[in-house]
Structure formats: C-alpha cells, structure tokens
Simulated assay, not measured.
Amino acid sequence: MTAMPVLHYIYDPLCGWCYGAKPLIDQARDILPVVAHGGGMMTGAQRRPVSAQLRDYVMPHDVRIAQYTGQPFGEAYFEGLLRDTTAVFDSAPPTSAVLAAEQLAGRGLELLGRLQTAHYVEGRRIADDDVLMAIAVEMGLAADGFRAAYVAVSGEVTQAHFKASRQLLSRVGGQGFPTVVLEQSGQYQVIDLGPYLGKPQAFGDWLRQLDAVRGQDSSGSAPSCGLDGCQ
C-alpha cells in the first residue's frame, strides 16, 4: 500500500512570498495533509524594529508580490504598521502561536493564514502577545487554553522547531521561504510554486494528479524570501 502523500510547508509568518502563496496552501489543505515548519527568518539578530529604512526596503517587494499573486495588501499595513516605529518584526512570537494552535486544536495553519491577513491587510502587530491572544480568540480558540499552550511552546521549544525546520530545508535543498516539499513513499521532492502563484485552482488540479507531481521538474526558481529576509 502506498503511503498517503504529505506536503511539507517551510514558511515564515513575516515572509511576503509566503503570504503570496497562501491561496495555494489553502488549496493544498483540501487535498492532502499539510505540515507547517516555521523557519525563523526574522529572529535573533534578524529581528527588526520598524523604521523608514525597513519600510523603503519591503514596500517595493510587497508591491511586486501583490502584482504577481493578486494577494491584497491593506492601507493599514502600508500607511499604518510600516510607519509605526514602536513595532518590531519578530518571527518567533507568531510562530509560537502557530505551534500553540496546532497543539491545542490542530489549527496551526488556519491561525497562520489569519496572522498573515492581520499583518498584511489589517496592519496589526503580530509579534505582540496581546495581539496574538486576541486573534486566537477571534478564531474561536479558548483563551486560557491557548495562552497556556503559547507559553509552553515559546522560547526553547520554538527555537528547536526553527532548528529542525532549517535542517529539513537544507536536507531537501530549499533556498528560502516558502519551500514546499512533497513527501511520498519516503521520497522528498521540492515543488516549484512559481507557475501557480496567483492560480490556486490550477495548483489544486495539479496536486490531485500525484503521478504527474512525481515526475514534475522542480528545478524552477519561484520567487521567495531568503533565510534572513525577503530579497
């Protein structure tokens, strides 16, 4: 019996191209199991306070992502969050929240998608604990349970998760975020998302044809964020 295929999604919650790929991941979740692996793009020395320099750096990339994928970026993000010099971009807290939601209710990827919208459309500070708690509750997660799970996975557990995700990324030869890997019968194959960005239905149709997936050339160069920030 052939094992059920699994899609591994190596992401970062502050990666614009991951947000661009969100409709593809949503399609994939309707077809086969998807496992999320947070890569820790903006952690440690890569954490960044919002500044004019950061805004000037990320805005052209975000405009390109919007044009390339059709994903919406809100005025509250461009003219609100990206001008809020008290905000910090830190991948660790939102990744911890995704881990907590997965542990608590198997809803990690759902929370990730909600956090991406909160960041890029609503301009909310998804590195702030109180914002993460509020969004979890908005999603219907129990406040006390989520808070306990979030505290439990923060710190060392999240750092270990980042390390394991980076090891997987290296093992499959991925170059950045997002990297999507099909695991089937013990074999791992990186999937080139480039042709499907902005075309989620086509990606879903293609994923359903797993024989074709196995033979697909994955040597393309879909746009992505690097290990330490979006390029």
Rank of each mutant, 00 (worst) to 15 (best):
A28Q: 06
F73P: 01
E138P: 05
R208C: 08
E183L: 00
L115R: 09
V50D: 06
Y77R: 02
D130H: 07
M41K: 11
L193H: 09
M4K: 13
Q71T: 03
R171G: 01
M42A: 14
Q187M: 14
R29S: 04
I10R: 06
R114F: 01
S154T: 10
L24A: 04
T86W: 05
P223T: 05
A202T: 03
F146V: 08
Q159C: 04
G229Y: 04
A76L: 12
G198S: 11
F89T: 10
E79N: 14
A36S: 09
A52V: 07
E79K: 08
P94E: 12
R147Y: 03
D130A: 15
G39Q: 05
F203A: 00
D26Y: 01
P223D: 03
G80S: 09
G155A: 11
C230S: 12
Q46K: 13
G80H: 06
Q27G: 07
G70Y: 11
W206M: 07
L112D: 06
E183A: 10
I31A: 06
G113S: 11
A202E: 08
C18K: 08
M139S: 09
I65V: 15
A28K: 07
V137N: 09
D128S: 14
Q27R: 13
L227V: 13
A222G: 10
P49L: 06
I126E: 08
D128E: 15
L104Q: 12
T2Q: 09
K163I: 13
T2E: 14
G145A: 09
T43R: 09
G74M: 08
A134L: 12
A100S: 08
I31C: 10
V213G: 07
R124T: 08
A101M: 11
R107W: 08
S170T: 10
R83G: 07
S170N: 15
F177H: 03
L81M: 15
Q167S: 12
A28G: 00
D217N: 13
V121W: 08
Y57K: 10
D217P: 02
T179I: 15
V34Q: 03
D217F: 01
A97P: 00
F78P: 00
C15A: 10
T43C: 05
D26N: 03
P60D: 07
M1D: 14
A92E: 15
L81C: 07
Y68N: 02
L227P: 02
S91R: 05
R29C: 04
L207A: 01
A76C: 07
R83S: 13
L24W: 03
A97F: 02
A105H: 10
F73Y: 14
A160K: 15
F146T: 10
G229A: 10
A149M: 08
V121M: 09
L32E: 08
R55P: 07
E110F: 00
T158H: 05
V131T: 13
C225M: 05
Q231Y: 11
G70E: 06
Q53M: 14
A212Q: 12
H161T: 14
L81N: 03
P223S: 09
Y150Q: 05
A222T: 03
